[in-house]
Amino acid sequence: MSDLTASELNMVFNTPHGGTVHALKDVSFTLKQGELLAVLGPSGCGKTTLLNIIAGFQHPTGGSLHLGDHEITAPGVDRGMVFQQGALFEWLTVADNVNFGLRMKKADPAETSRKVEEWLEIVGLQGFGRTPTYQLSGGMQQRVALARCLINDPDLILMDEPLGALDALTREKMQSLVLKIWKETGKTIMIITHSVEEALLLGERLFVMAPRPGRIHKEYHLPFADLGLTNDPREIKISPEFVETREEILTMIWNMEEEIMGKTETV
C-alpha cells in the first residue's frame, strides 16, 4: 500500500521585499494508490508549490507528507515528474533521455534498451530512439518526458500542466495516452491543469484550489475518467452532466478571479 497522505501542509514564502506569501494553508488530503487526481485553480493558488513539495524539491514550512510509510523529505525515484516544458536533456538522443533513470541506476544495458524500445512504442515514438531531442516537436518532447518518467516505474506520477503547451489535437491524443497508461499500469497520478475540460476528462478525483492563501476549495469525484476508457471523449464532453459540472467549476474559478481582482483594486 502506498497511499499519499498530506496533513496540514503549510508553505510560507519570504519575498525579497520582506513580506510573506502564504502559498499553501492547511492542505490535507489522502490519495489512494491507483487514483487519478486532477488539480485545478486560478493562477498563483499554489498548485506548483504543492507538486514541488510532493516531489521533494521543496520542504513545507509546516505539516507532514507521507507516501506509504515513508515521510517525503527529498526527491526520489518513487515519484516521477513530468514538467510543463519537457525539461529534456537536449544534448542526449531520445533513447538516452528515456533511459536516463536506468543509467543512473547502472541497470543492465541489454535490459535497458529493451525497456526503452517498449516505452517508445507505448508513447508512439518507435524508431525515434537515435533522434536528437532538440529536433523533436513539442508534442513528441512531452511523450519523451512521459516515457522517461514511466520507465523508472514510480509509484506516483506528478504532472505539472504537461499538456499546456500543445495544440488541441495533440492534446486530445495525449489525454487518451495518459488515460491508457493509467489504466494499463494502475499508477497513482496527480495532474495539474489549467483546462477545466481536461481536469474533468482525466480526473477521477478533482481538487479545485483557491488562492490567498492557497487551499483546497472543493473536491469532486467524477465518473468521466472511467467512461473515457471505453467511450469517445467527444461524446462525453457534450453529455449534459459534463457540461453542468464544467459550468459550475468555471463559475467558481471565475468568482475567485473576480475576488482577487477586487482585492487588488481596493488595496
Partner: peptide
C-alpha cells in the same frame, strides 16, 4: 527544472554534475 528532473530520476549529486550540469 532539468536538475529537478534528474533528481526525481534518481541521479546522485555527482551524477547530476557529470550528466546534467557539465553538458549544460
Amino acid at each position: 527544472s532539468k536538475i529537478h528532473a534528474a533528481h526525481s530520476l534518481g541521479a546522485s549529486n555527482r551524477q547530476i554534475i557529470r550528466q546534467v550540469i557539465l553538458p549544460n
